[in-house]
Amino acid sequence: MWTRLCNLLFTVNPLNTSLAKLPQNSYGAKPSLASSFATSKVVQNSEKSFQEVRVDMADMKVETKPVVLITNVGSCVAICIHDSVNKSGGLAHIMLPDSKITKNDVLVSKYADTAVPALAEALRKSGRSSFGLSAKIAGGANMFSNLKANSLNIGEKNVEAVKEALENNGIKLLAEDVRGTCGRRVAFNIVTGKVHVRCGNKEVTEI
């Protein structure tokens, strides 16, 4: 049923942007969600087509090819760092604020304090010059109040830790879409530096 719906939507209108304007109810089949159901697809754009590359949880990716990096975050935070000089960018999907929480963990992209320098370093290595690094962040929601009451406010802590890490590494924070109670789908165009965020089942916004 779901697949059939997706197929239908694709055939009727393959354009992401115009689908998002169709009427929808709060729990309904959201056309924009439906179109993103396929795991790999090409985003239609007025100028160019971009390949979507998914960044897994606790992972980070740095790209120099023209792609859109995507990830889904709830309490996690997506850190998008854009290099405006080299037209490259990287996205880290962090889960925890501080790498000191656990011992002997080698996965730097899991923690706010280690992911930011790792991302910046990877971008510097990939480019000819290191100027023009800027960041946009999204995530840090608290979707379930029982969880929040019980196990500290991890979303909030993640956001704070990311901001601190950006400041420590001298990277300017240009925009943010954080906190709240909805999960976010983040799409980061590494060429333009634009980040499209869809919060829950609302419309896509650009930050």
């Binding site: 889904n72 975050v73 889960m95 925890l96 969880l147 991890i154 789908r185 829950g200």
Partner: peptide, 21 residues
């Protein structure tokens, strides 16, 4: 009970973080 409608990953991540702690 609490209810949420969102993408699969976004719903899961708070629980995974909690386990990770």
């Amino acid at each position: 009970p609490e209810r949420a409608t969102d993408s699969f990953d976004a719903i899961l991540d708070s629980f995974l973080i909690k386990q990770m702690l």
